[in-house]
Design a protein around this nucleic acid. Structure first.
Lengths: 261, 261
DNA sequence: TGAGTTATTGTCGTCGTGACAATAACTTGT
DNA sequence: ACAAGTTATTGTCACGACGACAATAACTCA
């Protein structure tokens, strides 16, 4: 589609796109080993504008796709993963989001499991490929991808964010803020973990998301008081120290929180 | 625009619209006099689909309008009011929202002042006209309107909601839920009131929104502890009993809460 | 002047939370 | 086997927020 001038294109209805901010938990980069960190996959743009820059996975909304389905679809097509959590973030519709045409983007944010997210890339800046697979649990077969235009980055790395296309840096920062608020309330931390987990692992999620360390004793009590966390009889063996109890999450009944279509 | 068949229209990009859920505080209907209640303006549809039914104010998004500007514009055009608070609610994009074409609606919700919202209509079902005006304070001149296709309704009235066009009943319920959550946290209650207000008035807002009565003593302490509420030296005269102190709201500095574009 | 009503302050028990001590259980090294 | 080291788990305690409710203050109206 071509437009004769600015006023002509502005008169038309804006284009509608759906993008997704995808978070996974991984070991932090070298140096401090044990700590976990949030990572997200980005795709390299192959066309103008912002050709060559990294951007959030997404694309135009098809006429037969529900919004959330579109988000799940471009999540799967870029990462080969199925979301453990998926929620609408915001609709961004500023006039200057794109230098070419006016685009309104409805952005979703998602959580996926660490083990699903593949191996740890050596260097984000190098555009390292993700290696998905090695799924420790039964489920849909992981798609092995070697797309050089998809790579994972540390979500909190401002140097990465500043290089993103469009207003995607703002979007990621807003998604991080939403994630922090969500985790502060309810129980979505387990969606970054496997089926069974230790309380210390949940605490690592909280610490990674909130960016500060938490008292193990107090955190334990608080988490056990919340509904949904039930203890399996099992313990995690193979550690170097006292084996921790394994827990799992069972969905409590929906408590009157409306889910907008 | 006409389409030959369903698959043809589905292949095209969905239409983009912006709608707004507008809340104001008013005296509840007859019977229990003193109590306040949430009301919202609706517009009667003059075209198919849902011709004759009541619906949220809104319309297609122009190519040169920012999303929030579009919401403020259709708020002003239907009610003649300027919002005291305006926030994006959600983007609704289900495939079956409209029986004709596929429409994605980005919905905002707004708070306006009681005094701005005009006189109390006798009966919602009758499609009573709003009478805007009688603004007790300086500001933009209120637009006097007599549009028979705009009327105010009690927001909590399920009988009203069930008659709405499209999925607008769900949207209003979701907006009410968001409003309840917002009021529980922060300080937006004063945006339904005038420049100066008594603590009892703020409490009435909370009681109307939350749907339960609150202890005046505890509410007072809690509110005074929160930032932004400062006491003027004045008292509200003319009441039947001990004159309450008048307060006003001053915006505290933004506390790191990102405002998505 | 007194009754009635609202505004405002005071008191108190409960609960959630953070700081931190203490104990339990396991691995590793000698 | 034993000690040392580390993590898991339980206990204790002080503080602040909050709800229930009593008590006082201040005004209007009859």
């Amino acid at each position: 589609m071509e437009f004769a001038n600015v006023s002509e294109r502005m008169a038309l209805s804006p284009e509608l796109a759906v993008s997704t901010v995808i978070f996974a938990l991984r070991d932090a980069d070298v140096s401090d080993a044990g700590r976990k960190e949030l990572w997200l996959p980005l795709v390299r743009r192959t066309r103008e504008p912002f050709k060559g820059r990294w951007a959030l996975p997404g694309g135009p909304l098809g006429g037969t796709q529900a919004l959330q389905d579109a988000a799940a679809a471009n999540l799967r097509s870029t990462t080969g993963l199925v979301p453990r959590y998926l929620e609408q973030l915001y609709a961004f519709g500023g006039l200057d989001r794109s230098p070419s045409r006016r685009v309104v983007s409805i952005v979703y944010w998602a959580l996926v499991r660490e083990s699903d997210a593949g191996a740890h890339p050596a260097r984000p800046e190098a555009g390292t490929r993700p290696v998905t697979g090695a799924d420790g649990e039964p489920g849909p077969t992981s798609v092995l991808r070697e797309d050089p235009n998809v790579a994972w980055f540390a979500a909190g790395d401002e140097a990465v964010l500043d290089g993103l296309a469009f207003d995607h840096a703002d979007i990621v920062r807003y998604a991080l803020w939403r994630l922090r608020n969500k985790v502060a309330y309810g129980s979505i931390a387990h969606r970054l973990l496997g089926e069974r987990f230790t309380l210390a692992q949940v605490r690592e999620v909280y610490e990674a998301v909130l960016g500060r360390s938490l008292d193990p004793a107090n955190f334990r009590r608080q988490l056990l008081a919340s509904p949904g966390i039930v203890e399996t009889g099992e313990f995690l063996q193979g550690g170097k120290h006292r084996p921790p109890r394994l827990y799992r999450y069972v969905e409590p009944e929906p408590a009157g929180i409306p889910d907008p279509g």
